[in-house]
């Protein structure tokens, strides 16, 4: 089975998390098991660590990129 670690902030509900896991199984098959982690620094969105790749869909990262663009 493939492990998928999802790290979220405090705002994501269980229903949204369940929607995420169901969409992952539809996409990559049922041979997945999920681990949820909480990070209080995350402002909206999630980190997804799956199959050797990390997907960053957090608003805090987008805010940081905006800051870097403005500082250039």
């Amino acid at each position: 089975m493939k492990k998928c670690v999802i790290t979220t902030g405090e705002t994501m509900s269980e229903e949204t998390f369940r929607l995420l896991t169901e969409r992952m199984r539809k996409r990559y098959g049922d041979d997945l098991w999920f681990e949820r982690k909480y990070d209080p620094d995350i402002i909206g969105g999630f980190f997804l660590d799956f199959d050797g790749q990390i997907y960053d869909y957090t608003l805090s990262t987008q805010l940081r990129r905006l800051k870097e663009q403005l500082m250039q």
């Binding site: 902030g9 969409r23 539809k26 996409r27 990559y28 402002i43 909206g44 969105g45 997907y55």
Partner: peptide, 29 residues
């Protein structure tokens, strides 16, 4: 953002993720 972000924003980000890596209508391979 910390004050205003809600679960609806999380759900939108989930949709954005699957639009980027999976594409609409390609779920389940």
């Amino acid at each position: 953002l910390r004050r205003e972000v809600t679960d609806r924003d999380d759900r939108r980000l989930v949709e954005d993720f699957f639009s980027a890596v999976a594409g609409e209508g390609q779920d389940g391979q």
